[in-house]
Design a protein around this nucleic acid. Structure first.
Lengths: 333, 333
DNA sequence: TTGTAAGCGTTATCAG
DNA sequence: CTGATAACGCTTACAA
């Protein structure tokens, strides 16, 4: 089943069939109808390989995914779903590349012309893929900021903004414990950790609250939470192991929104998955990927534009995990 | 950068370069070295489109993914990671197709020759994709069992087996409440729900325990758990909304493994994400996908073998959420 | 408005 | 063991 068959049935030349599909030259209404009928009748579908070969366009976006996610499965899924939908909306498909493949993965999908563009997730400060990306034949979009973003296209959630908002929600407290990403994440060089930290500390200082920075370690989460609670802290800012933290709080007989304040950096579904819905800043994985894809297709259509860095703004959703009432609250900066 | 360039540099014919890569005909050690050196020097990579066109092989596996997962993000991610790794291990790549595309998605990736094979996840009883699959030019593997599996290749976790094991773990109790998938999942026609149910009830009957079947509805989970607890039930078998169920239990002041027995059908990471690690049957997403991919590549190499149905065996991991001690336990069937 | 024909970069068949 | 060369199915000048 090829365009040649369609041409024969329609009684036109094969190139006409091609032009009917691409619309790259005027076709009389009559011929168009005839050809389209023939295609319909034969349930013709163009061969992707042939098309890629002739047009130098695969209509495929490669996405480099980290499966051992710091991000959490929920966020990752949202990312990839949104990316796939955005791609399909523009008649493209998505190819998955494991981050495990490292720089070779990038070289492979670009070098073999398997794709027209690449999206790289969970980029670290000293990401070796940055260097490769600068020389790739295809536009590449990084989700996350390497230290040297020169010549790259990078986009990320605005963690600084998120930190400020979260601290703002807790500003009625004299002391806040930030229960955050532990060495597992820090060691991977994901620089949103220091970015978030710096902003959180600045915001805390400005609001006059003491911020206790507590990186949570996988095998000690409960213990760490208990320690913080035992210290009399009544305001928790959580960015990691949310589930276990909330459990531990409850086990200590405390209830967010009643006995203490708890805010989180989490997706909406995570924040609402508890008995007490949590006031949270969403990492907006969907917004990030939507914006990333819009940008990527711009690059694809208008040629690689100027390199730059984009941030997706943060926003708080107030739910029931922060005490309201007579306690005086300082407005957020 | 094409094989022609490599040929020129190596001083051989282009076809020789091709044969060096494919190994499909004897090449003298000398020529092979020369050619390989040239490839190295030019960092040559074969063009995927051209190769697909000429060989009728894309080296791509399409995976149809449901993003609004009944399965849970963790399980889904495990699936896709394992599938991707298995594919890469055999020099294939993975293309993501959203389940949302329905039958058209299948038609598209097969019809356009975008892939060599397809994996379809979360197959329902009356899945319309089953009919399409029978006529596809590419081997198709279903994860899940449609009612009519005639002529199809289907694989799934052995939910019946899982149900039996889980009931077995609770057999010391006179009454067990099964907190299971609600209408959301049932309505999608995922037939592992009835499969699990039938097996659970049979096992309960055999063990002389009364089984209360409680489909959990998204907006009433906590309420439903409280009701079950209020009824004095001390044995919970959970297959859905695990997080919220455990929370609710704890909020009721009860502790699994101390005040009541709780077992779950969940991935290992889910089962161990609580203060009390849960005795659970893992749905083994990784085993399922590994086995699926092995089978798929067999089909790819040996031509579509006989259609059949495969089940991935269940197993319990005993942790600390079931009370042990003097209570008499009946052995599982 | 349409047809003809030259690629695109491989694979694989003939010859040698 | 190796070299020509004809596909593979499409896109896109170049002609008409």
């Amino acid at each position: 089943m090829t365009s040649k068959d369609v041409a024969r049935v329609a009684g036109v030349s094969q190139s006409t069939v091609s032009y009917v599909m691409s619309g790259k030259r005027p076709i009389s209404e009559r011929t168009r109808r005839i050809v389209e009928d023939a295609m319909e009748q034969l349930t013709y579908q163009p061969n992707a390989g042939a098309r890629a070969l002739a047009s130098q366009r695969t209509q495929i976006i490669a996405v480099v995914m980290p499966f051992d996610v710091a991000l959490g499965a929920t966020g990752l899924m949202a990312f990839i779903e949104e990316i796939t939908l955005a791609a399909r909306a523009r008649d493209h498909d998505v190819l998955i590349v494991t981050a495990e493949e490292g720089v070779d993965g990038l070289r492979r999908v670009a070098g073999r012309a398997l794709c027209d563009a690449v999206v790289v997730m969970e980029v670290s400060s000293d990401d070796p893929r940055a260097a490769i990306a600068r020389e790739l034949r295809v536009p590449t979009l990084f989700i996350g900021f390497p230290d040297d973003a020169e010549g790259l296209h990078c986009i990320d959630f605005d963690f600084e903004d998120g930190a400020r908002l979260l601290v703002g929600e807790l500003a009625a407290n004299a002391r806040v414990a930030a229960l955050v990403w532990g060495s597992e994440t820090v060691d991977r060089g994901l620089n949103y950790v220091p970015r978030f930290r710096a902003a959180a500390q600045a915001a805390a200082a400005a609001a006059g609250v003491a911020l206790d920075w507590v990186p949570l370690e996988r095998d000690r989460v409960e213990e760490q939470v208990r320690a913080v609670l035992a210290g009399g802290c009544e305001a928790l800012l959580v960015t990691a192991h949310l589930n276990r933290v909330v459990h531990a709080v409850q086990e200590a007989g405390l209830r967010p929104g009643t006995d203490l304040d708890l805010v989180a950096l989490a997706t909406d579904v995570e924040a609402t998955g508890f008995t007490v819905p949590l006031t949270a800043v969403s990492t907006h994985p969907r917004d990030v990927s939507r914006q990333a894809m819009t940008w990527l297709f711009d690059l694809l259509e208008q040629g690689s534009g100027p390199a730059q860095v984009q941030r997706v703004p943060a926003s708080v959703t107030r739910r029931s995990s922060v005490r309201t009432g007579p306690t005086p609250r300082v407005p957020r900066p």
